[in-house]
Simulated assay, not measured.
Amino acid sequence: MSATRVQNVSRTSSRAAARATAVTAIAASAVLLLSGTAAAHVSVQPQGEAAKGGYATVNFKVPNERDDASTVKLEISMPTEHPLSSVLPQPVPGWKVTVSKSKLAKPLESHGRQITEAVSKVTWTADGSKIGPGQFQQFPVSLGQLPENADQLVFKALQTYDNKEVVRWIEAPQEGAEPESPAPVLELSAPADDHHAEDAKDGKAAEDTKGTKDAQGSAHGEKSASASSDGSDSTARILAVVGILVGAVGVAFGVLSGRRRSS
């Protein structure tokens, strides 16, 4: 192979490698850009589990998306299709919280009492604090009673910046497509075990334990009775031997006494 041909092959390989590197860099940048955009919306996550029919503490996580503005207000609307009888926000330093309630079209039953109104919106307003560029803030809330006939709860969120811009995170999730402004979604886990079943299980375990103890006590009693019987038999045998010995001594003493009198 000539030197010229070798140089041409080398140049072609270098160009191909450069193109591959450029394509890889562009693809990586696109992935990072898309993942950053998808992860930048307001979201909600439970602390532990959010089981159907139970209560849970959740965190609304609010990242700041702007380089030249700070977040100063967050509004979270409660789901209207599944009203919650208990919504308790945890105080966040530097933020003022306001809870709004509304009348329910259909009253709720909770712990034997009827609920005619429920929390419809929770609003946090900056009061000496804010979420600056490159920062995020979490807002904890206790929620309950979670619905038993739903797999998730959708909350609508409004994020306000100090430049008066309002970002509306209100689009419900759609299968096979990611909304441009997705609303926070709380996934609900399977309901906790039935307490009655647990009580029955505990009761059965207690009965089994009692039966075992009774059987052990009975066996111990039989063993004690057997030991007592064995002890009584041994004592009787000993007394019988002693009686025989005493009798033998008495006979020998009588014989010796008779011989002495004869002499």
Rank of each mutant, 00 (worst) to 15 (best):
residue 160 T to P: 02
residue 259 R to C: 00
residue 22 A to S: 11
residue 99 V to E: 06
residue 244 I to T: 07
residue 102 S to I: 09
residue 124 W to N: 05
residue 13 S to T: 10
residue 34 L to Q: 06
residue 253 F to P: 00
residue 125 T to L: 10
residue 205 A to H: 11
residue 255 V to F: 01
residue 165 E to A: 10
residue 65 E to F: 02
residue 73 K to N: 12
residue 136 F to G: 11
residue 129 S to V: 07
residue 181 S to Y: 11
residue 190 A to C: 02
residue 95 W to D: 09
residue 64 N to C: 14
residue 79 P to V: 05
residue 238 I to Y: 02
residue 64 N to R: 04
residue 257 S to Y: 01
residue 167 V to G: 00
residue 239 L to N: 14
residue 253 F to C: 11
residue 247 G to T: 10
residue 18 A to Y: 00
residue 207 E to G: 03
residue 107 P to V: 09
residue 249 V to C: 11
residue 246 V to H: 00
residue 55 Y to P: 06
residue 229 S to Y: 06
residue 200 A to P: 00
residue 139 F to A: 01
residue 80 T to W: 04
residue 197 A to D: 12
residue 71 T to E: 03
residue 201 K to E: 14
residue 167 V to C: 00
residue 98 T to Q: 12
residue 158 L to N: 14
residue 172 A to I: 11
residue 238 I to T: 15
residue 170 I to K: 07
residue 130 K to D: 05
residue 30 A to M: 10
residue 100 S to R: 15
residue 2 S to H: 09
residue 35 S to N: 11
residue 40 A to Q: 12
residue 122 V to D: 01
residue 218 S to C: 08
residue 116 T to D: 10
residue 179 P to A: 06
residue 196 H to W: 08
residue 70 S to T: 14
residue 123 T to L: 02
residue 32 L to T: 10
residue 149 N to H: 09
residue 196 H to Y: 10
residue 150 A to C: 03
residue 33 L to T: 13
residue 44 V to M: 02
residue 68 D to N: 15
residue 42 V to E: 03
residue 91 P to E: 09
residue 14 S to T: 12
residue 237 R to V: 14
residue 116 T to Y: 02
residue 50 A to L: 06
residue 59 N to Y: 08
residue 66 R to Q: 14
residue 99 V to K: 06
residue 85 S to K: 07
residue 242 V to D: 12
residue 237 R to Y: 08
residue 226 S to V: 09
residue 200 A to K: 15
residue 30 A to F: 05
residue 102 S to M: 11
residue 104 L to Y: 04
residue 230 D to N: 13
residue 194 D to F: 04
residue 17 A to S: 15
residue 230 D to P: 07
residue 101 K to S: 13
residue 237 R to Q: 13
residue 19 R to H: 07
residue 234 S to N: 14
residue 18 A to I: 01
residue 31 V to W: 01
residue 228 S to N: 13
residue 234 S to R: 15
residue 26 I to D: 09
residue 38 A to M: 13
residue 137 Q to D: 03
residue 3 A to M: 13
residue 63 P to D: 05
residue 231 G to A: 15
residue 165 E to D: 12
residue 108 L to S: 08
residue 215 A to I: 07
residue 117 E to C: 04
residue 245 L to N: 06
residue 202 D to G: 08
residue 190 A to G: 07
residue 215 A to C: 02
residue 224 S to Y: 04
residue 67 D to C: 08
residue 227 A to H: 10
residue 112 G to V: 13
residue 4 T to I: 14
residue 201 K to P: 01
residue 46 P to V: 02
residue 175 E to S: 13
residue 219 A to Q: 13
residue 112 G to H: 08
residue 21 T to S: 13
residue 132 G to M: 04
residue 197 A to M: 05
residue 60 F to N: 07
residue 182 P to A: 02
residue 119 V to P: 01
residue 114 Q to C: 06
